[in-house]
């Protein structure tokens, strides 16, 4: 779920732009400069992947993929996610122009969190890695929903109800994202394991 324009108090919207700017700077700094065009092209792939709808009972949900992006891009995940959100806002109006900073924080920080979790289990047994990917992805979506709730709650007690419902609405997404991330990682382990080493600079500074 992406925040639209007009939901957040202006101070929060502007403030989250500032924090997002700092995180972007850190993310770009941790990425090898030559790799940024590569990150851009990978981001297009993530963007297209996030348009895929997963059927869920009578309805369907589109994938958020903060966990998978974090696992595959490491430190660069924040810049990747943010640019994806910018393009999404420009193309589709999913997520408002003035809420871009907030939406970037909401998805970018969880991607880093997932990258950290997966980095921790990387190199252990296959089962551990797949389970770690599922946990990383689930934690990322859960964290995203909590950040969303926190941002909504800055609007005052009028927004507490909406914040609670937003968290509850994310619960099925947590499960789906965890399962999808597990399948993606188990596929990549067999097909192209070097992709999982976050070749775009998780360790390089």
């Amino acid at each position: 779920m992406h925040l639209s324009d007009g939901v957040l108090p202006t101070a929060v919207a502007v403030g989250s732009f500032a924090v997002t700017g700092l995180c972007l700077a850190l993310s770009v700094k941790k990425t090898n400069g030559d790799d940024l065009p590569k990150i851009a092209v990978m981001t297009s792939a993530f963007f297209v992947a996030s348009l895929v709808h997963v059927p869920l009972g009578p309805t369907s949900v589109h994938l958020l993929l903060p966990g998978v992006v974090g696992i595959l891009t490491g430190w660069s995940a924040f810049v990747s996610i943010f640019m994806g959100l910018v393009l999404q806002s420009l193309l589709f109006q999913f997520g408002g122009l003035t809420a871009l900073g907030a939406n970037g924080l909401m998805m970018g920080l969880p991607a880093w969190c997932a990258a950290g979790i997966f980095h921790y289990v990387r190199g252990r047994s296959a089962a551990m890695e797949v389970a770690g990917a599922a946990c990383a992805s689930a934690a990322a979506v859960a964290l995203a929903s909590l950040i969303l709730a926190g941002l909504l709650a800055t609007g005052g007690e009028d927004f507490f109800g909406v914040a609670k419902i937003a968290v509850i609405a994310h619960l099925p997404v947590v499960v789906i994202e965890a399962v999808i991330a597990a399948f993606v990682v188990s596929f990549l382990r067999r097909v192209k394991p070097e992709l999982l080493d976050a070749p775009m600079g998780w360790r390089s500074v």
Binding site: V41, M42, A45, A49, V54, F183, F187, L188, K192
Partner: peptide
């Protein structure tokens, strides 16, 4: 469906990389 979609996305990432 989830398993197929997982492989589908994995393949997309391999190709795009």
């Amino acid at each position: 469906t989830m398993a197929s979609l997982g492989s589908f996305l994995g393949m997309l990432f391999v190709r795009s990389m």
